[in-house]
Simulated assay, not measured.
Amino acid sequence: MTGTLYLIPTPISEEAVIDSLTGDIVRVLHKTQHYAVENIRSARRFIKSVDRNINIDELTFYEIGKNSSDTEKSSIIDILISGKNVGIMSEAGAPGVADPGSDIVLAAHKANINVMPLVGASSILLALMGSGLNGQKFVFHGYLPIKQNERQKAIRQLEKESHNFSQSQLFIETPYRNKAIFDDLIKTCLPQTLLTVAVDLTGEEQFLETKSIQAWKSSQVVFPKKPAIFVLLA
């Protein structure tokens, strides 16, 4: 009998470690010895914060990411085939959603291994839930281009698609580029377009507001230097 591949969400803010956990996550951590993780150090710290009685030194960690080799991924599948459970964890949020892990999940399906996603925080869904914008039709785009001219071109295209298909357009940004992308949105989008800015969701500095571009232009906004989700609806 094969093991189970557990997809284990982790807190999306440092302050929400215990509050965001479900009983299922705690139970899975107690019966899993092998982990494929985005960052070994943060994964060890997370497990220890859940239960200090878990012996971290008895666990095995495999670091996964964009540069993981096929051999490394195959070794994780081999562990599952041998009957042992494996947990996948990203550094924050839901593994496989804008984070590493989806390729291992696909390989597990091909090997007829049971895949069990667990309930937990996803900044993407929390931002959409809190936006008040279209939650029936939406598209997530990850990161927009770094270069300003390419980013502004992408914003115009997203606004056009949002208007044509009545879709909420979601994208994320790193803390040090929050202000730059916000300024580009204000300069590029039409006055009536709606924009949600969601920063540090579930954290102590949470910022979550939806306004028209026109209203944002007259607002004095200072965002926390934390990861952000933007939701746009034209």
Rank of each mutant, 00 (worst) to 15 (best):
K153L: 12
F207L: 07
P191R: 09
K160R: 12
F182C: 07
Q206L: 08
M129Y: 12
H141C: 03
D184M: 07
E150H: 06
F140W: 14
R151M: 10
P175N: 05
G130Y: 00
R177N: 06
T210D: 09
S131D: 15
G135P: 01
G132K: 14
C189V: 14
S162M: 04
I172E: 04
N178G: 04
G130R: 05
I146C: 04
F138I: 14
V199D: 01
Q206H: 00
Y143L: 08
L208F: 06
F138K: 06
L158R: 10
F138S: 07
P145A: 04
D184G: 15
L133H: 14
S162G: 12
T193K: 09
E159R: 03
T196W: 02
F182H: 09
L195S: 10
M129S: 10
K179T: 12
K137H: 15
R156S: 15
K179N: 05
K153I: 03
Y176D: 05
A127S: 13
N164R: 10
I213S: 06
S131C: 05
S166K: 15
N134K: 07
T193A: 07
L133I: 08
F207Q: 02
L158S: 13
N164H: 12
I186W: 02
A127R: 13
N134W: 08
Q167L: 15
L170I: 14
L126A: 09
L126Q: 00
T174N: 00
K187I: 10
L185T: 07
T210W: 03
P191K: 13
E150P: 11
P175Y: 11
T210R: 03
I213R: 02
L125K: 02
K187A: 12
K211M: 03
Q167E: 15
Q157C: 05
E205P: 00
G135F: 01
L144E: 01
E205W: 10
R177A: 07
I172Q: 11
K137W: 15
L170H: 03
Y143S: 01
V197E: 11
R177P: 00
D200P: 02
Y176R: 11
K187E: 12
R177H: 07
G130P: 02
L158A: 10
R177D: 03
E204S: 15
L190M: 10
G130L: 01
K137V: 15
L185K: 11
K187G: 04
N164S: 11
G142Y: 12
L201W: 01
T193R: 11
L126V: 08
T193N: 07
Q148R: 10
Q136D: 13
E173W: 14
C189M: 14
R156W: 05
C189E: 06
S166P: 00
G130H: 02
G203C: 02
V197W: 09
G135A: 05
G142A: 15
R156D: 10
V197N: 08
C189F: 05
N164W: 08
H141A: 08
F182E: 01
D183Q: 08
Q148D: 12
Q167H: 12
K211N: 09
V139M: 09
Q136P: 00
T202Y: 01
I186P: 08
K137E: 13
H163S: 08
